[in-house]
Amino acid sequence: MKGYLGEFEELVLLTIAVLGDKAYGVALKENIEERTNRNLSIGALHSTITRLEEKGFVESWLGGATNERGGRRKRFFKVTQTGKVGLHNMKSLRDELWKNAKVELAFDKKNQA
């Protein structure tokens, strides 16, 4: 489905937004791994980014040559306007669902844990 944002895709997209102008492969990977406590392969990450690019949510460019990685350039990512719209849609959908939930979703984390 065009424009549909999967769970992991949303995660990657938000992380790109979080990292701002330092969003490139390794940074994304480590950031996501840190937050979600799960292991990511570069292949999976880049596949998702490729899908996001195809949907027009993300754009990328090559940075300049670097010293720390054998002179190889980094590819940086940025959330596009479409990406922002997509995130907004997702968020408002969630907010609406939260608001209309018949069950009380709010609870005290400390008590539950």
Partner: peptide, 9 residues
Amino acid sequence: EDLIGDMDE
């Protein structure tokens, strides 16, 4: 190139 760069890093 960028992918290999990521891997190297």
